[in-house]
Design a protein around this nucleic acid. Sequence first.
DNA 1: CACTTAACTTAGTACCATTAGG
DNA 2: CCTAATGGTACTAAGTTAAGTG
Length: 637
Amino acid sequence: MAQEDKVKKVKVKKAKESVLNDDFSSGDAHLRKVKKVKTKSTDKSQQEQKASEEHKVKSPKKESTEFEIANDERFKEDADKGDFKPEKKGKKRKRKLESVDGLSSSTSLSLPKKKKEKAPHEGEANSRPQKKKRKTEAGDKKVKKEEEDKPITAKKKKTKEEIEAARALKIKKKEEEEQQRWRWWEEEKYEDGIKWKFLEHKGPYFPPEYQPLPDNVKFYYDGKPVKLSLVAEEVALFFAQMLDHEYTTKDVFRDNFFKDWRKEMTLEERMLITDLNKCDFGELHGMHREKVEARKNMSKEEKQVIKEANQKILEEFGYCMLDHHRERIGNFKIEPPGLFRGRGEHPKQGMLKKRIQPEDVIINCSRESRIPEPPAGHQWKEVRHDNTVTWLASWTENVQGSCKYIMLNANSKLKGEKDWEKYEVARKLKTCVDAIRAQYQEDLKSKLMGTRQRAVALYFIDKLALRAGNEKEEGETADTVGCCSLRVEHITLHDTLDGEKCVVEFDFLGKDCIRYYNKVPVSKRVFKNLKLFMQNKQEGDDLFDQLNTAMLNKHLSSLMPGLTAKVFRTYNASMTLQQQLKELSNPLDNAAEKLLSYNRANRAVAVLCNHQRAPPKTFEQSMANLQAKARFQILEA
DNA sequence: CACTTAACTTAGTACCATTAGG
DNA sequence: CCTAATGGTACTAAGTTAAGTG
């Protein structure tokens, strides 16, 4: 999840709190106070947090999705008091159904009424040119001053002021944005399944067309220059651009690429080019490197020009109108063509990810909205008007055959509400988790093998925060597993290990091919069951042969509506954070200490959820630097 | 019911701008 | 002032889950 989302989530969270505060306004003043304080400090630490103690475990900010409720004081006290009722119309929400078309929403008290949705526009239109003006002004002066006699002090002063002004402007803009934020959480929800009443957008933004190679850049086959057809050339360039990457050394990648590349070739080309090893992409690669270099060395002004162009695109395609509010789209750009970069040992790595044409794209919007125009000379695959889904456009991707969607970004109503709902479900789990735990403990003794397996799986999911683990089609994806898809080779049973009894050693690749390695002491009963499950099985066999995610989730939802396997991850991550925060921090701590505890608490969550990050490319070098420094210091001492 | 797939969330990585450190 | 570290954002792959299908 993107950092951006983090910030947005924080905002969403604030929103949640405010709903809560409203609800409790007549009630528990103490609670509210606590909440306020909590929220504040949390936000602060999220913004300020910097420390990243080790490189291997991810820094805290990315865990947002899994721990948020723990940040939330409500979670502790009043899991059942929240008024979020996904299926019902919220009794306390203000918006009436008739207000859906906007006009009557003017009754919704305090918000500045006029042109709510237009305001951001105006705000930006005002502030941007202003900013620009300021900048160029300052720039001019700078240049002038430099030519004059006392350049340095004057220049310094000016930039300082400039920076100050820019900062102030930024803050102001943020506040403004906050002011006109759509307070959807104060409004009434739609009936079941309806996601919007009005949706208008400009359609997706398509990547630029391929620019043919200049004449002086040539591809060579078997030492001889070959002028490739446009399509074949484009694909060749995809490969050439990746030559610095490890991918291009892998056989699977190379084979897949070559196979798909040849499909794009003309008959002649295909006849000629039969061996990837005889292909020389050197000049294409060189050209690419030069381009990257040139981009890096661009002047400030050139960069500014590009930035502004991007801004313009964002303005035009990056937003939509959803129920009279301007909402930011998360990914309004169609994914550009390239070579598929699967994670881990992905059998499809290197395959050509084809260019998406408007003819591949389905548009979804209101019937009565301005239908987006397809690019000149093109048509949409389809225009539909389905308000039970949240996507604005979709297409089918050719490598895996899966659907891709254009959707709103994380701070939009559509995403925020869903997120809220998620935490409400987790809060609900808190009220019945004891019963559910007792239940699966009991089920460990069941006479039915399926029930026992389900119980053990649930035990893992609950205790270790494992993912559900759907089956996957072999050969289509990397070989990764989750709980239900664990195979016998993924665990080792130790009657005793390091002085502990009944230890299960896990070693498998999970989502994104991230290794899960853990040694966990379990109860005798679980241990015995595992032994039983593994009897007469060999490598490659499912540990839980009588269980799959559908069965597990069906069972869970019968225990509590809305309960699925992933809720446990949310729940346990949140509980961990909250409990760690409590344990590690002290109300009297200063900001730095609070930050440290916060980071440590997040660390605990990261460990629980097995969130990991590859060491940065520069790690080796940084480490060497640090070591050198350390050595130096020792010598000095 | 098994199997597929649409729709959505979760997650790691690449890249870029800003800031801190030297 | 330059360079490395850092933090934010964009991107898109890889999951989960429920609904549809034969």
